[in-house]
Every structure is written in C-alpha cells, then in structure tokens.
C-alpha cells in the first residue's frame, strides 16, 4: 500500500479506437506525476478513469489501496478531479462555487471558511469572491477550479491540463499552490501538453497513441535519450532544417524558435558535417554547440523512433 496511485494494464476503447492501451504506472505519495503527450494521446481518458467517471475495459486502478474500478464511489471522497473543460458553475459566484463543493464533500463550516480564505489568498482571488465564475478570466477560472478541488483536502489530486490557456503569472501562482500541497503530502497527477511544465514534475510518463513510451524522472529521461543534441542557431531555421535532412549521423531535427535542435549519434563527428552541409548553399548560422536536451527533445526522439518502427 506504499503507492498513492497504482494502475496496471489499463485499457479503454472508443469503438474501434484504442484510446488507452495497456497503461501501467505507480505514483508515490507526495509526488507530482505528469502525463505528457500531444492531444489524442489518451491523457484525458486515463484521468477520467482514475476519477471514477469512466470505466476501463481492462486493467486495475488502486487509489490509496481503494479499487476504483470495483468501487469508484469509495474512492471519490478522497480524490479531487479537475476536468480539462471548466467544470464549475458559471452562473454561480466564486464563493458560491467553493461553498457548493465544500458541502458536497461534507467540509465543516469553520474549516470551509478558514481553508477557503487561505486558498483564495494563495490564488489572489480574494477580491473576486462575489464575481460570477463566468466573468472570470481563463487563469482565474482554473485557479477557482483548483480551490474547489482543494477545499476538502483530498489525498489524490487529478488535474487534466490545468494550465492550458492560463497566463504566466496565474500559472506561477498555480504551481506555487501545487508545491505547497506536495509539502502537505497530497499526491498530484496532472496532464500537460506543455513541455516546460512537464519539467516541474517529479516524474513523467510520456504518452503517445494510448501507450506509455517512457516513464521516469525528467532528469533520467533526458539522460536516457539516445544520441546527443546539437543546437544550430540561425536567422532562417526552416532553411537549416531543410538542408540538414539526410546528413549522415543525423537522427532527428526539431525546430525550436530561432534554432534547430539536431539529434545526432555522435556529437564530435557530426558537428563538422553539419557545418559543411550548411556552407554549401551558404545558409547563415551561428555556432553549432552541444546542448542538454529538454523534455520536448526526448519526447520527439521517442515518438519519432516509434513512428519509424511502425513504418518499417
């Protein structure tokens, strides 16, 4: 019973589509575990099954030792789920929404008031408690969602893409609350399509087409990426990307704003080859340097390999 979340061989189909295919992972208490992947990878489906609002076709889910598949209602008092789409009542005020969710979870009045004030303070929503939720900005709505999810002090918090469409300031406040919760021992599982956000998690599962490609700490995932990464800064990175396709030793190319990340089998051998290829058509570029991979590089490396394997 050491794990806060343990799922095994979880599978869910929608008609012919296998949305989640034999997914297994465990999350330790107090972890911030991230599900990372593009739209359609199966993140939301996993979240919904964990929240007990969608039943799996196969597999097991244990939340704090409670079998969610067999008895979802037993798990619900201990978890909080924040759906991807804003799930609160837009025609109720901030305070009314908080109160409603507190009542549903049977939070005593005193505790509700104290904890509500604390959370409103942390989310900088105090001045807006009488505003209708529908009139809040995107970031405020997500913070209100988090407050409603936290008003009853859950053991497990499930957040489905909680910061999509949220401004940077609100996002920072959002994460500050999450870190606080971790201190209190709340286990957090969140999904995200933002790679920079993924780096903040203690562990990640990289999800693609309903399957886990890799699951580890961000650090170890980066270390485990096959090959090395070279960055080529350029005024016209698209031209660079086009020119470098097919250079021997190049495993993958990824456009990163004003630069191209080139994954190669051997950095020392590949760097001069790249420079030579770019010199031919005279494409201007900055110094080619070895860089540490980000989660996005790791993800593209894994998924790119997978697509190639499927094609072969």
């Amino acid at each position: 019973m050491a794990e806060a979340i343990a799922i095994g061989n979880l599978t869910r189909r929608f008609g012919p589509l296998v949305a989640v295919n034999g997914v297994s992972f465990t999350v330790a208490p107090g972890e911030i575990f991230g599900l990372v992947g593009p739209d359609g990878a199966g993140k939301t489906t996993i979240m919904r099954m964990l929240a007990g609002v969608l039943s799996p076709h196969a597999g097991t889910i244990l939340l704090d030792g409670i079998d969610v598949v067999a008895a979802p209602e037993r798990a619900k008092p201990h978890l909080s789920y924040m759906p991807q789409r804003f799930g609160l009542y837009e025609d109720l005020t901030v305070a009314e929404n908080i109160r409603f969710y507190a009542e549903l979870f049977g939070v005593p009045r005193k505790e509700r008031i104290a904890r509500g004030a604390e959370l409103l303070e942390a989310a900088a929503l105090g001045p807006f408690r009488r505003r209708l939720a529908g009139n809040l900005s995107g970031g405020m709505k997500q913070k209100l969602g988090l407050i409603c999810a936290l008003i009853h002090t859950p053991r497990v918090l499930l957040l489905d893409e909680p910061t999509t469409g949220v401004d940077p300031v609100s996002r920072r406040e959002f994460w500050a609350i999450l870190y606080d919760l971790r201190e209190q021992g709340v286990t957090i599982l969140l999904s995200t399509a933002y790679m920079d956000e993924a780096e903040r998690c203690t562990r990640l599962a990289l999800l693609h087409a309903g399957e886990i490609r890799s699951c580890d700490t961000p650090q170890r995932l980066k270390q485990a990426m096959p090959g090395a990464l070279l960055a080529v800064p350029a005024a016209d990175p698209r031209a660079v990307r086009a020119a470098l396709g097919g250079v021997p030793g190049v495993l993958g190319l990824l456009l990163m704003g004003d630069r191209v990340h080139v994954r190669v089998d051997d950095a020392a051998r590949a760097a001069p080859l790249l420079a030579a290829r770019l010199a031919g058509p005279n494409i201007a570029h900055g110094e080619i340097a070895r860089v540490e991979p980000g989660i996005e590089d790791v993800f593209v490396a894994l998924v790119g390999d997978a697509t190639k394997a499927e094609a072969a």
């Binding site: 759906p83 799930g87 009542y89 549903l104």
Partner: peptide
C-alpha cells in the same frame, strides 16, 4: 451541455 456534470460526478454525491 455546460460541462459541469463531469466534475459533479467525480464527487461523492449519490
């Protein structure tokens, strides 16, 4: 339709 049901059914409400 308003998307509030998903969150509502994740609570212990019977």
């Amino acid at each position: 339709e308003r998307g509030t049901m998903e969150q509502l059914i994740s609570t212990p409400v019977q």
